[in-house]
């Protein structure tokens, strides 16, 4: 599946996590849900918020702030869960709020500076500037670990 349209067009869903702006390719976003209480999983890493009922299936929810090693905020009613589809598997990403959908072209993307020591940047695929705001484009594959990675 191509990540871009015919004219290198790319639509990004932008959202806020711990007062920073991030984005995801909209093609990988299935839906956006309001925050509901999660059922915590035992002995889970801190970014694993638990599971919720998504129309009869069990959806694991990840706290994106904690995943990005940012200070986690108290959850409130404005928080949303972005349901993303990675290789057919659905995962919920808890973010502070969804901002916008922006259309850009591949040319607008810049590779992130090499900051491999920065754990936050390892999941950022590229950067783009919209209205003078720097927006990080997340690499979903790096954000959501494969289940096998986590088996202790």
């Amino acid at each position: 599946m191509s990540e871009q349209g015919q004219n290198n067009d790319l639509e990004l869903l932008t959202f806020r996590v711990a007062d920073q702006e991030y984005s995801l390719d909209i093609m990988s976003v299935r839906e956006i849900r309001g925050w509901t209480r999660t059922t915590p999983m035992p002995h889970a890493p801190d970014y694993m918020r638990g599971v919720i009922n998504l129309r009869g299936t069990v959806l694991p929810v990840m706290d994106l702030a904690r995943r990005l090693h940012l200070p986690s905020q108290e959850t409130n009613d404005r928080n949303v869960i972005i349901v993303v589809n990675l290789n057919g598997t659905l995962t919920g990403l808890l973010v502070d709020a969804v901002s916008d959908i922006v259309a850009i072209t591949e040319d607008d993307l810049q590779l992130p500076p090499d900051m491999s020591t920065d754990p936050q940047m390892s999941v950022v695929r590229s950067l783009t500037v919209i209205d003078d705001r720097m927006i990080r484009v997340l690499d979903l594959r790096a954000v959501v670990p494969a289940a096998s990675d986590e088996v202790a």
Binding site: R37, T39, M41, P42, H43, A44, P45, M48, V51, I52, N53, G56, V58, P60, M62, T89, L90, T91, V144, P145, A146, A147, D149, E150, V151, A152
Partner: peptide, 20 residues
Amino acid sequence: DSFYRAPGIAAATILGDGQI
């Protein structure tokens, strides 16, 4: 399908109130 497999947890179910 979860990115995290919890030890001791076999599966989940959905309760009458919609909670897991």
